[in-house]
Amino acid sequence: MLLLATATTGQVLSVKDAIVSRHSIRKFVQKPIPKEDIDRIFELVRLSPSAWNLQPWRFHIVTDTELKESLKEAAYGQQQVTSAPAVVIVISDMEDVIANLPETVHPGLSEERKQEEVANLSSFFNGLSVEERGQWGLTQANIALGILLTALQGYGYSSVPMLGFDQEKVKEILGLPEHVKFAAMVPFGIAESEGYEHHRFSLDKIVSYH
């Protein structure tokens, strides 16, 4: 099986093959994922494009058995949460970004330009409510989510993005601030079952030329 081979031999799929072969998987091989593989995947994910380079995405990777059981309960008993050797919670935390704006400014800029960037960003985001800032950051986290799913597949790990869970319970389980926004809960590992064949709209349905 190609996906098993890539996960065990270190071979990497092309971008095209990773996208074409990706299916949502809900049953996984009971085998831990080497931390080196996870780090390799997130080295790619952190390069996701982000408006103003704010990078509001944060990733909470859960491998602890008891924590996964708690997450499964929060996800209304969905078995893939505990079947997967690892689960990543993808969130956006714009309040952390705003509190540390100088970290987002490119180091190659002059000090004057850095100060201007921080002042402009502060002015813009302080004019929004916490909820509005959170929604803005969520659009950015969703970009990283797409790249995460592709990177996982490219390295031979299957996944399933989920939004069917009690967000308040997950915040409590992981000790997350109230203001964070969730892009997805993503169980991942080596597939033990096959996913459904793709059923997607044709280009005529989704693409318009003007």
Rank of each mutant, 00 (worst) to 15 (best):
residue 3 L to W: 13
residue 4 L to Q: 09
residue 6 T to Q: 15
residue 11 Q to T: 11
residue 12 V to G: 04
residue 13 L to W: 11
residue 13 L to V: 08
residue 14 S to D: 13
residue 15 V to G: 05
residue 18 A to L: 10
residue 20 V to M: 08
residue 21 S to L: 14
residue 22 R to H: 11
residue 27 K to T: 06
residue 28 F to N: 07
residue 29 V to W: 10
residue 31 K to F: 11
residue 32 P to K: 05
residue 34 P to C: 02
residue 34 P to W: 03
residue 36 E to Y: 05
residue 37 D to C: 00
residue 37 D to A: 01
residue 38 I to V: 10
residue 39 D to G: 00
residue 43 E to P: 00
residue 43 E to H: 04
residue 46 R to G: 00
residue 50 S to P: 00
residue 50 S to N: 06
residue 50 S to R: 02
residue 50 S to I: 01
residue 50 S to L: 03
residue 51 A to M: 02
residue 52 W to S: 06
residue 52 W to D: 07
residue 53 N to R: 04
residue 53 N to I: 00
residue 55 Q to P: 00
residue 57 W to A: 01
residue 60 H to L: 12
residue 61 I to M: 01
residue 63 T to P: 09
residue 63 T to D: 11
residue 64 D to K: 12
residue 64 D to M: 01
residue 66 E to Q: 13
residue 66 E to S: 12
residue 66 E to K: 12
residue 67 L to S: 12
residue 68 K to Q: 10
residue 69 E to F: 03
residue 70 S to H: 11
residue 70 S to V: 09
residue 72 K to W: 08
residue 75 A to Q: 12
residue 76 Y to L: 11
residue 80 Q to A: 02
residue 84 A to R: 05
residue 86 A to V: 00
residue 88 V to G: 13
residue 90 V to N: 15
residue 91 I to G: 02
residue 93 D to H: 05
residue 94 M to E: 08
residue 94 M to D: 03
residue 97 V to P: 03
residue 98 I to P: 01
residue 100 N to R: 03
residue 101 L to P: 15
residue 102 P to H: 04
residue 103 E to Q: 12
residue 103 E to T: 08
residue 106 H to N: 14
residue 109 L to K: 14
residue 109 L to H: 09
residue 109 L to P: 01
residue 112 E to C: 07
residue 112 E to F: 08
residue 112 E to Y: 07
residue 113 R to F: 15
residue 114 K to H: 08
residue 118 V to E: 04
residue 118 V to A: 06
residue 118 V to T: 13
residue 118 V to G: 06
residue 119 A to S: 14
residue 121 L to D: 00
residue 121 L to S: 05
residue 124 F to G: 01
residue 124 F to E: 09
residue 126 N to S: 15
residue 126 N to V: 10
residue 127 G to M: 11
residue 128 L to R: 05
residue 130 V to M: 15
residue 131 E to S: 15
residue 132 E to K: 13
residue 134 G to V: 07
residue 134 G to W: 08
residue 135 Q to C: 11
residue 135 Q to M: 12
residue 137 G to E: 08
residue 138 L to K: 07
residue 138 L to P: 08
residue 140 Q to D: 11
residue 140 Q to N: 07
residue 141 A to C: 05
residue 143 I to A: 12
residue 143 I to P: 02
residue 143 I to N: 15
residue 144 A to Y: 13
residue 146 G to P: 01
residue 146 G to Y: 06
residue 150 T to M: 05
residue 152 L to R: 03
residue 155 Y to R: 12
residue 157 Y to E: 07
residue 160 V to T: 09
residue 163 L to T: 14
residue 163 L to E: 15
residue 165 F to H: 12
residue 165 F to L: 11
residue 166 D to H: 13
residue 168 E to A: 10
residue 173 I to K: 12
residue 174 L to T: 10
residue 176 L to P: 02
residue 176 L to E: 06
residue 179 H to Y: 10
residue 180 V to Y: 00
residue 180 V to W: 02
residue 181 K to I: 08
residue 181 K to Q: 15
residue 182 F to D: 08
residue 183 A to F: 04
residue 186 V to E: 12
residue 187 P to T: 01
residue 188 F to I: 01
residue 190 I to C: 02
residue 191 A to P: 06
residue 191 A to T: 08
residue 192 E to P: 07
residue 193 S to W: 04
residue 196 Y to N: 05
residue 196 Y to C: 10
residue 197 E to S: 09
residue 199 H to E: 14
residue 201 F to M: 14
residue 202 S to E: 15
residue 203 L to Q: 06
residue 204 D to F: 01
residue 205 K to R: 12
residue 206 I to V: 15
residue 207 V to R: 10
residue 209 Y to N: 09
residue 209 Y to Q: 13
residue 210 H to Q: 14
residue 210 H to G: 13
